[in-house]
Amino acid sequence: MIGPGDRLPARAFRLTRAELVRYAAASGDHNPIHWSDSQAGRAGLPGVIAHGMLSMGLAATALTEWAGEGATVVEFGTRFTRPVLVPDTADGVDIVVGGTVAGFREDGSVRVDLTVHCGSEKVLARTRAVLVYDR
Rank of each mutant, 00 (worst) to 15 (best):
M1Q: 09
P4L: 08
R7Q: 13
L8F: 04
L8Y: 05
A10M: 03
A10K: 04
A12I: 04
A12V: 04
R14F: 09
R14I: 10
E19F: 07
R22I: 10
R22M: 09
G28I: 06
H30D: 15
P32N: 14
P32A: 14
I33T: 05
W35Q: 10
W35E: 08
G41H: 15
A43M: 15
A43T: 15
G47D: 11
V48F: 09
A50F: 08
A50V: 08
H51G: 13
G52A: 06
M53N: 08
L54H: 01
S55F: 00
M56G: 13
M56Q: 13
A59N: 00
T61H: 11
L63V: 02
T64H: 08
E69D: 12
A71V: 14
F76Y: 15
G77Q: 06
V84S: 01
V84F: 02
V84E: 01
V86P: 04
V86E: 03
P87L: 05
T89N: 06
A90Y: 01
D94N: 13
V96L: 04
A102T: 06
F104C: 01
F104Y: 06
E106Q: 11
G108D: 01
D113A: 05
L114G: 03
T115C: 03
T115Q: 07
V116N: 00
H117T: 12
S120M: 01
K122C: 07
V123F: 01
R126G: 09
R126C: 02
R128S: 10
A129N: 14
V130K: 02
R135T: 15
